[in-house]
Design a protein around this nucleic acid. Structure first.
Lengths: 309, 309
DNA sequence: TAAAAATACTCCATAGGTATTTTAT
DNA sequence: ATAAAATACCTATGGAGTATTTTTA
């Protein structure tokens, strides 16, 4: 058994086809085929059921491949430990961020980040929270930025900031008023437009609705925050938008009125998470620090009670 | 990098000497030397400081070696998963047990265990609890039997039984009486003989002493339970012995009187622990079950309140 | 001057390649 | 009939050996 063999079985489990797995490993199909065979012979078990159309792992195969993945993650971290001992700041970090935050947070952070850590390479991935955490746990991501609370097991979390929600209404909506803060209670009996299932913003807005007695606007579920915004502009209903999504450099379409909530405003807590065993464990607090550099008039720094106006 | 290289650096970190590490890996010194060099070149870091008298890991080396160990544990578990898929009961289990229990528990369990699981190979290790847990966590043991509570992180525990303590006194001691149960409170103001530091039996007996106001007999600390027993026989002082240590097939020396405690008797909880990620995770409950087969007149099965007489 | 590690060099096991055959739908 | 996997066979990288030199306490 050697590390290359483990890459082969992991690739084969992934691609379910010897030829494609071989391509992914940059070897020929016979090479991958014989090596997988040899590993099966060495272990004395069949790891894959070969079908002509598709190849898939046996029960033992699944267990073995899960361990093989763990081995490869450890090996990658050995390489990273060695590299980072030369220059910790020259890391390549695979960072995941969820869709209703990423596009609005990154413009505030990336420029200064690039200035402070010029050798840092950030590979950004935008996925829903559930997928981000899955990828973080199995080593496909090095860190994620998500809204707390999360069910964490073996993950280390570092709070970044608290982001208030604001009310977005069609301009001619009664609640639009003249932009003065409005109480959350004013939402009672409103029909609120929400994102589709799986977005954490949907759950966050829903929990606000449950508290004050608002209900979801039936029949429409937006697939992105931008769609949501456009639907409000089209006069369909009101919605909750996170603060970063309504501040410069983001511009708001005509027909949408933004109404801040009176304190205590509904909000969400944003944190960065990584595996305690990550090879970047010592470096990631510096990255988190950079992500805290969002103007305090947009978000609230962690461990700070929102000041009542 | 390949798995053999990782074995080399782990062995070298262990033996702190190229020649001895090479012997341990069954290769020649130049082979190990060149392979370690190549790995250092590949990683671009020095993993070991070479001295003529001794060789030891650099800071990066220590981190790398820790990960290398983790890799090798995972690889061992891949082999074990494959093997156990053929015959789960033919496992070779490295089982640790602490010194004041092992010699008295095993005779009650091994014979029937051997009958029920004839293909099972048990490698028994007797060490103090702290060392057992260290070895369990780093993969040198597959399971341990220790007294709860323990600080567990990622360990799975399965309660085995509750073992009462009995009072052992010199035969001419006032508390010896005629063997009738004696209250724990009777220990107040007694000087109790204890084991040396590091034995969990010492801590267990000490906590009983603290409750009733007994103190440690100064000047003597026994290094084993058998020594303790002999010192009681010699009339030095009283002590607490665990139930299994005073029942057949163990025989007690002349000059020692055994006095049971009245309910509720002081006792200790014995459990088996293993890593949640152990390749034996599915099998070990069967082993635990076997270790519960101790006559109920000696110990109390788990989740059973001791019946008041 | 000894003990330990590094170097020189040789060898061969095996990972990997190409060409081809076998298998299953 | 066709796509996929297995087999045959060849090549060459690199892991492991022995013999020897270099290093340092």
């Amino acid at each position: 058994m050697n590390l290359r063999d483990l890459e082969y079985v992991v690739a084969l489990a992934e691609h379910r086809n010897f030829g494609r797995a071989a391509d992914a490993c940059f070897v020929s199909q016979p090479t991958l085929s014989t090596q997988v065979h040899k590993l099966e012979a060495e272990l004395g078990v069949t790891l894959f059921e070969r079908g002509t159309r598709e190849t898939f792992p046996t029960d033992v195969g699944r267990d073995v491949i899960a361990r093989a993945r763990a081995v490869l993650v450890e090996v990658a971290s050995i390489r990273e430990i060695a590299r980072s001992s030369q220059n910790p700041a020259a890391a390549t970090i695979r960072l995941g961020i969820f869709p209703t935050l990423g596009p609005y947070l990154l413009p505030h952070v990336i420029p200064s980040l690039h200035r402070e850590l010029p050798d840092l390479e950030l590979l950004l991935v935008e996925e829903k929270t559930e997928e981000l955490l899955r990828r973080l746990r199995d080593g496909r991501l090095d860190a994620v930025i998500v809204a707390t609370p999360i069910v964490d097991d073996g993950l280390h979390g570092d709070p970044l900031f608290t982001e208030d929600f604001v009310l977005a209404t069609p301009s001619d909506h009664p609640l639009a008023g003249r932009g003065e803060p409005v109480s959350v209670a004013a939402l009672a009996d409103e029909h609120v437009l929400l994102l589709e299932e799986g977005h954490c913003l949907r759950e966050q807005a829903l929990s606000v609705c449950h508290i004050v007695g608002a209900v979801e606007r039936e029949g429409f579920r937006a697939t992105s925050l931008e769609t949501l915004r456009q639907m409000v502009a089209a006069g369909v209903a009101v919605t909750l938008l996170p603060a970063l999504a309504v501040h410069a450099p983001v511009s708001n379409p005509d027909g949408v009125a933004l109404v801040p909530f009176a304190e205590p405003a509904p909000h969400r807590e944003i944190s960065m998470f990584w595996r305690e065993t990550s090879p970047f464990h010592a470096f990631l607090p510096r990255l988190a620090e950079a992500f805290r550099r969002v103007p305090a008039d947009i978000v609230t720094p962690p461990h700070t009670r929102p000041a009542s106006a």
